[in-house]
């Protein structure tokens, strides 16, 4: 059933409408929310949302509970290929929890929080931006990790990044929900403005595995990947020091050794190499720059160090 979460009049003959699909069956009271589309340029999750809805409709008898799918929290951004909210240039994921008596966007954010709150679990799916490609991963802050890790391990991701909390992130959807008792996992995968079917399928398998463990799905599921669990200190950041055109020499998902060449920053005007970019540590390249033009400081890669601070292996609730 398609439901309207909130709607607001736009200036000329149109409403900003946030919709969700509620798919329900059986007697189980548990509810899972799949949330996508806060950033208008992140489209990987559109495929994921469709996959889940398609599977549930074809096999509704295997569902025992409620699945709410929110494919587009920022419909105006998706429509106009805009990451933030058009007109305001605001990052919607910095406006939560919003306010019932606030501006248009604040009231929209508040209504979304109200609608999701109380779910047994929420999965907020992101897909990087147009600049970086990401391996399917789950991110969480240290304070939430004790609660969220058991669920994250079921989601069939390659790794789980537990990072330090930052005050500025307190305005995100995930923080707002977690801090009010609705367990929310943030998935990152792929690249902006594109759909990578493989990643969509991977997280799809993970979500059905999670639902099975929660007693909401009676169908077959795949054995989830055993993710690497990383603390913040085990991630190496590679930023460009030069400006130019970045051409990688490694592939996404490669394991590299410290000082291996990751790529070059080229100067097409002079036909020169401006910078030879090297790995800052041994490990897995889980983030790689997709958009080639760079300035000094542009993020080129993130490398996951496999050492005594990282933990291999999944688990059960």
């Amino acid at each position: 059933m398609i439901k309207t979460v909130t709607e607001t009049m736009l200036a000329v003959n149109e409403k900003l409408r946030i919709q969700k699909s509620t798919i329900k069956n059986g007697s189980e009271k548990k509810r899972i929310c799949i949330v996508t589309g806060t950033h208008g340029d992140e489209l990987e999750r559109q495929y994921l949302a469709w996959l889940i809805g398609d599977e549930l409709r074809r096999n509704i008898s295997l569902l025992d509970g409620t699945v709410d799918i929110y494919p587009a929290l920022n419909p105006l951004g998706i429509d106009s290929i805009t990451r933030g909210i058009p007109q305001f240039d605001l990052d919607m994921n910095r406006v939560f929890p919003g306010s019932r008596n606030g501006t248009m966007i604040e009231t929209v954010c508040s209504a979304i929080i109200d609608d999701i709150s109380g779910a047994d679990i929420c999965i907020d799916v992101h897909s990087s931006n147009i600049f970086l490609r990401e391996l399917p991963q789950i991110r969480m802050s240290v304070p939430t990790s004790e609660t969220l890790l058991p669920y994250a391990k079921m989601l069939n991701v390659d790794f789980i990044w537990v990072h330090e909390s930052a005050t500025v992130l307190e305005s995100t959807l995930a923080h707002s929900l977690n801090s009010t008792g609705t367990k929310t996992l943030v998935v990152e995968m792929g690249v902006g403005m594109r759909i990578t079917r493989e990643y969509g399928r991977q997280i799809f398998d993970g979500i059905f595995n999670l639902m099975k463990n929660m007693g909401m799905w009676k169908g077959d599921t795949v054995e989830p990947r055993r993710p690497i669990i990383s603390q913040n200190s085990a991630v190496g950041f590679v930023n460009s020091d030069a400006d130019g055109v970045f051409l990688p020499e490694v592939s996404f998902g490669d394991y590299v050794k410290k000082d291996d060449v990751l790529g070059n920053v080229l100067d097409p005007l002079r036909g020169e190499i401006r910078e030879v970019v090297r790995a800052v540590c041994d490990g897995l390249v889980f983030t790689l720059r997709e958009y080639p033009i760079v300035y000094g400081g542009s993020l080129l890669a993130r490398i996951l160090t496999i050492d005594d601070k990282t933990v291999k292996g999944g688990g059960e609730i």
Partner: peptide
């Protein structure tokens, strides 16, 4: 390029991203 806001990057970071 990245559409980031310099006034949301303070105090900055010399090894970070461009606007940082």
């Amino acid at each position: 390029m990245g559409n980031t806001d310099i006034n949301r990057m303070f105090p900055g970071y010399d090894q970070g991203e461009t606007t940082q």
